[in-house]
């Protein structure tokens, strides 16, 4: 039986996040040919509807309200439920982002449904769909299926290939009105700490530092390399505990779990807890003075050496490459 699936399009700084297109691709598999409806929530988002359609949604509904400028679980919950009542979908897909993690359990509780969080792959289609997700921070994986009720999943950024954008696709973008009221939380202030807005969960390249960076200023060359590669900065617990950087950068079993295309570990020894957070990256480069460091056991390429020599050399070499290209 084909399924009608609704996909939440997540907007950041006025643009759709890549994970939303990945969520549409996941929805395609779950739908078994059923209709895919994109949902946009915000104070001014309707203009992004066509892009969701170009990536595979059949049509889009938007809920716009001044109270939806900032995400709150109450505001977005009310907006999403207004769409849900109108559309009555059989399946729902969100990105497993800060927003998706916060909102999806609320919706699942309202619907009294199951919810499969942090899906990295889907086997089979429609009623046969089996969802693969990491457990123990990626030390193992489980396959699960949903026995009854709404098929509700969140997909981990960077894992499911989006469909190719088709500029020729068009569809209906309609608005749904909702009363957004009685918000129990109000966002007072937002301080941006992430490096140039490249978020770790979606970054294609992560340059991570450990105790070997020796101080806050030791992250500077790593930042420069990350910027050059359009990537993000990360850190081991050791570096965070030593106050070299903010805990929001921590990668590992306590911390973020990341799967970029390229992970460069600089001055990180590779404790089992750190490996849990990054060992499923596609390509891993280790730079460490200690040839016995554990990190070399998972690295595709390793350089035994001082990161303060190696990283600046890499920066120069990559700059050269870009000039010659």
């Amino acid at each position: 039986m084909s399924k009608k699936v609704i996909v939440l399009g997540e907007v950041r700084d006025g643009a759709l996040r890549n994970v939303s297109f990945e969520a549409i691709a996941a929805a395609k598999k779950i739908s078994g040919g059923g209709e895919i409806v994109g949902v946009l929530i915000g104070d001014s988002v309707q203009n992004l509807g066509q892009e969701m359609i170009q990536y595979g949604a059949d049509r889009v509904v938007a809920v716009e309200h001044p109270h939806l400028k900032h995400y709150t679980s109450d505001g977005y919950g009310q907006a999403f439920m207004a769409v849900h009542e109108q559309e009555e979908p059989e399946a729902i897909v969100f990105g497993h982002t800060a927003l998706g993690k916060d909102l999806s359990p609320k919706i699942a509780a309202k619907l009294q449904s199951g919810l499969v969080s942090d899906v990295t792959d889907i086997e089979g289609e429609d009623d046969e769909a089996v969802f693969i997700r990491p457990i123990y921070s990626g030390k193992a994986f489980e396959k699960v299926k949903i026995n009854e009720g709404t098929v509700f999943v969140t997909v981990r950024p960077n894992n499911i290939e989006p469909l190719a954008q088709d500029a020729g696709r068009s569809g209906d973008v309609a608005s749904v009105s909702a009363d957004i009221q009685n918000l129990r939380s109000v966002v007072k202030d937002v301080v941006t700490k992430a490096t140039d807005g490249v978020d770790m969960s979606e970054a294609k390249v992560i340059v991570a530092g450990g105790r070997g960076v020796k101080g806050a200023e030791g992250f500077e060359p790593l930042k420069e390399l990350a910027d050059l590669l359009g990537g993000a900065i990360g850190a081991s617990r050791g570096a965070c505990d030593a106050d070299y950087c903010d805990y929001s950068l921590q990668i590992g079993q306590t911390g973020k779990v990341v799967t970029p295309d390229l992970y460069i570990a600089a001055g990180i020894s590779g404790a089992i807890q750190h490996l849990a957070g990054m060992s499923n990256s596609k390509v891993i480069v280790a730079i460490n003075k200690d040839p016995e460091a554990n990190i070399f056991k998972v690295a595709d390429y390793g350089i035994v050496g001082d990161l303060f020599e190696v990283i600046p050399m890499m920066i120069e070499e990559i700059k050269q490459l870009k000039v010659n290209a």
């Binding site: 449904s113 199951g114 919810l115 499969v116 089996v130 457990i135 990626g138 030390k139 193992a140 994986f141 489980e142 396959k143 699960v144 299926k145 949903i146 026995n147 009854e148 009720g149 060992s279 499923n280 891993i284 040839p291 070399f296 056991k297 998972v298 690295a299 595709d300 390429y301 390793g302 350089i303 035994v304 050496g305 020599e309 190696v310 050399m313 890499m314 070499e317």
Partner: peptide, 28 residues
């Protein structure tokens, strides 16, 4: 349960790759 586990597996063991050798500049 609404969500049922049907299997558990370990990720493929990551093979240790190549540690480069030679002059540091050449390695880079």
């Amino acid at each position: 349960v609404k969500v049922e586990r049907v299997d558990v597996f370990l990720p493929p063991e990551k093979q240790a790759g190549r540690v480069l050798e030679g002059d540091l500049q050449d390695q880079v």
